[in-house]
Nucleic acid binder design. Sequence first.
DNA 1: TTGAAAGCGCTACCAT
DNA 2: ATGGTAGCGCTTTCAA
Lengths: 339, 339
Amino acid sequence: MNIREVAKVAGVSTATVSRVLSGSVPVDASTESKVRKAIEKTGYYPNSHARMLGSGKSNTYGLIVSDIANPFFPELVKSFERLAVEHNQEVLIANTDYHPERTEHCVRRMLEHKVDGVAIMTSEMDPHLIQILSKRGIPIVFLDTGTVGRLISNISIDYEHGIDLAINHLTSLKHREIAFVEGPKDLKSATIRRDAFVSSLKRNGIKVAPGFIRQGNHGIDGGQKAMTELLALPKRPTAIMCSNDLTAIGVLIAAHVAGVRVPHDISIVGFDDIELSNLMQPALTTIRVSRTEIAARAFEALYGAAHGGIEKGINYTVPSELIERGSTGLCTVKTERKT
Amino acid sequence: MNIREVAKVAGVSTATVSRVLSGSVPVDASTESKVRKAIEKTGYYPNSHARMLGSGKSNTYGLIVSDIANPFFPELVKSFERLAVEHNQEVLIANTDYHPERTEHCVRRMLEHKVDGVAIMTSEMDPHLIQILSKRGIPIVFLDTGTVGRLISNISIDYEHGIDLAINHLTSLKHREIAFVEGPKDLKSATIRRDAFVSSLKRNGIKVAPGFIRQGNHGIDGGQKAMTELLALPKRPTAIMCSNDLTAIGVLIAAHVAGVRVPHDISIVGFDDIELSNLMQPALTTIRVSRTEIAARAFEALYGAAHGGIEKGINYTVPSELIERGSTGLCTVKTERKT
DNA sequence: TTGAAAGCGCTACCAT
DNA sequence: ATGGTAGCGCTTTCAA
């Protein structure tokens, strides 16, 4: 069931069938209908690999994520895939599972598939591997890491603004004793958030109390542990800002367990707005970063480079917004600092 | 950077390079090292499309899901992808988004990619489309729907046993007034669960009280709505079994909102054990169906058919198990039936 | 063990 | 507007 069969049935050349399929070149209406009929009759589906080989274009983008089961990713993957399908592109999805070894394998797969571009939505990416992709002229778009260059774009999430919104929200609720549970030290985006927190506090004339910045791991357990530590402090914070939602959920759970009421005794703010956040009791106030928009920018970067011939990398900024929900409330603890 | 370049650099024929790459045919050690050196030097990566065309095998499996952002799927996708990569296979992931139209497009993509098999993990699949795949000798594995046949396997989840475990758990906690929130009427797996509930109750000598089977939609909102209805009943149930976890979470949230304490006033059981369930307050007692195992069976079915030459379809059964958590407890309502 | 060469199914260029 | 045909990069006989 190949193009030659169809051509034979339709009584035309394979070139004509190809032209009908691609629609790029005008074909006589009567010829076209003959061809379409033959396609119908033979149940023909063009071989995408042969097409790739013939045209030299794979029409495929690679999408590398660290862990598709991480709540942050499914929606991103879904949006990216949808955009790709709409543009007649394929998506090659690869999971690094946070393993450098698997990461290398992922890149190899991308190379062997001759992808037209790669969206690298993970931070465990060896510069050496990037080099390999880049050397072959494959457009790349990063999430929140890496610098912009020729054929290399980046999506920056506006963490600073988001954190600012959160801190302003908390201070307007009279909170002054604000703690922060940070993410992994080696994660660039986590460091940015921590620094943004510190400078936002400074801007509001608040000093970070000793012990108010705790280590988390961007997981629920890390949040629980950090909260336990915070609750053991001689002077507890009245509000806690977390590096991501899972951390905040851990904090929330630890609060429940310790009998601390949220938001009455303590306010909690997360970051990311994963679906889960809206389902907690109370629902989590958080900073939303639209995954749909990240996917859109990533696709745009790749498509522009591969189809629009835009060689210059672009730095996109995806805004963040405050989602006010039940985990934050007016500070009920009297200020003790005036003494 | 193609195989001819490498052959030239190594001073051998392209056939030899191909043989080194595939490892299928013995090659002289010294020749091999020459070739490997040449590959290294040229930074050569074989073109997977050309390979496909030359060999006639795509080494790709299709994976069709209804919605990758649905909490049930990411883990399944991840496991499947991992298995595939381990077996040097690729995965073509397609989202139907519950749309028949997109579904048809998905199947088309599978066909054009000449996949060696398709795992159809969604129920919106037109028999006509299955026919198309089947006619081309493409192995298929379904989840919980469709019948077994030549090259068509199926994965059955042992709902009955799971539901039985849940009901036994509830009755051992003295519950007799048990309600059920069902899923979409047109979803086969949802119907199975509902029926399993009814017969399990019967087996336990319990009659289903009027109004105790409510319609849900397998979403959180459906659960909330159903719970609101149940709470409005003149005689409330003391326990509620739900067709899936999202429904149960909706029920749980509605309970919170209505000031009904879980599990003190009412017990709730879910189905699926999505990650979220363990994070709710209280954590959800539920029936777990291992997504990892589903993925493993699906891959096994496809791999066996495509590589093992097993034409006969197999019906796999994936067990379910009760995960006891905080949302169920001893019935505190005195039985009123003795009157 | 190795090489030569005929495809695999399609596209795209050159003719007509 | 259509046909003929030379590749695209690889695999896989068939010979040697």
